[in-house]
């Protein structure tokens, strides 16, 4: 399945958002996720099915002012 993850094209065999994080090796990281511009809480990732062309954002803590 073709997915855009943090702006880059990925071909991932992931049925849901939790699986996509596992395949990206980010399942144990401190991250938050959004799907097509909408926040997806951690508890809802496994129940969030993915479709071809979906845009996923995965963010983590970073320096800020």
């Amino acid at each position: 399945m073709k997915l855009t993850v943090n702006g880059d094209e990925h071909d991932l065999a992931a049925a849901d958002l939790a699986e996509a994080l596992r395949l990206l090796e980010l399942d144990s990281a401190v991250v938050a996720t959004a799907l097509n511009g909408a926040f997806v809480p951690a508890a809802s990732r496994a129940a969030t099915a993915l479709e071809d062309g979906d845009r996923i954002e995965i963010v983590s803590p970073r320096q800020g002012g």
Partner: peptide
């Protein structure tokens, strides 16, 4: 301390190190 969110990469894991520091 003020902080932000930015894209995380599986390879670099910058956010994880920063969060540990904070």
């Amino acid at each position: 301390l003020t902080v932000s969110l930015r894209r995380e990469s599986g390879r670099l894991r910058e956010g994880q190190d920063f969060w540990g520091l904070i």
